[in-house]
């Protein structure tokens, strides 16, 4: 199977992926206005405070904001995985995350369903653990 395109961590995203490899979901929070932020950026996208947002551990809980089951993959790397279900999850803290759905919920996804974020085992040279979601226990 062709290699799927794993992310290459950069200055803005490295703390997220380091957390993910340890099974911890991390998001940014602005030290000036308190806004929670994802995807990570060098500054706060809400108040533009110059101080970099700090990283914090997120609850890992959220609800499905939308979902789709993909039958036509983007590339050969994903061909053996179709069909797979993707979900946009709105975290309790506010930001949105895109994840694979796993478990029973992947077969019958539902907007508004409560989920928890988990991580796949780390893979590749950068030890990337991709996030997925399952029904909240």
């Amino acid at each position: 199977m062709a290699q799927t395109p794993l992310p290459r961590p950069n200055a803005e995203t490295r703390p997220f992926w380091e957390g993910a490899a340890r099974g911890v979901l991390r998001i940014q929070r602005c030290t000036a206005c308190g806004a929670a932020q994802f995807p990570p950026r060098a500054l706060c996208g809400r108040c533009h405070a110059p101080a970099p947002p700090r990283w914090e551990e997120a609850s890992g809980r959220g609800v499905i904001a939308s979902h789709t089951t993909v039958h036509r993959p983007p590339s050969a790397a994903f061909r053996e995985e179709v069909p797979y279900t993707l979900a946009l999850v709105t975290l309790q803290e506010g930001p949105r995350l895109l994840v694979r759905l796993r478990g029973d919920l992947a077969r019958a996804p539902r907007i508004g369903a409560p989920v928890v974020i988990r991580f796949d085992p780390p893979a590749g040279p950068d030890a990337i653990a991709l996030p997925h979601a399952e029904a909240a226990p």
């Binding site: 904001a65 993909v70 036509r72 993959p73 983007p74 993707l86 995350l97």
Partner: peptide
């Protein structure tokens, strides 16, 4: 076309442009 997805937080999950619009459609 799938390269319009976020390189770190969308594309590695296997999104396509139709999948991104499907997420909008479902919502």
């Amino acid at each position: 076309l799938a390269e319009v997805g976020h390189p770190q937080f969308e594309r590695p999950l296997g999104v396509t442009v139709p999948a991104l619009y499907a997420l909008v459609a479902q919502a």
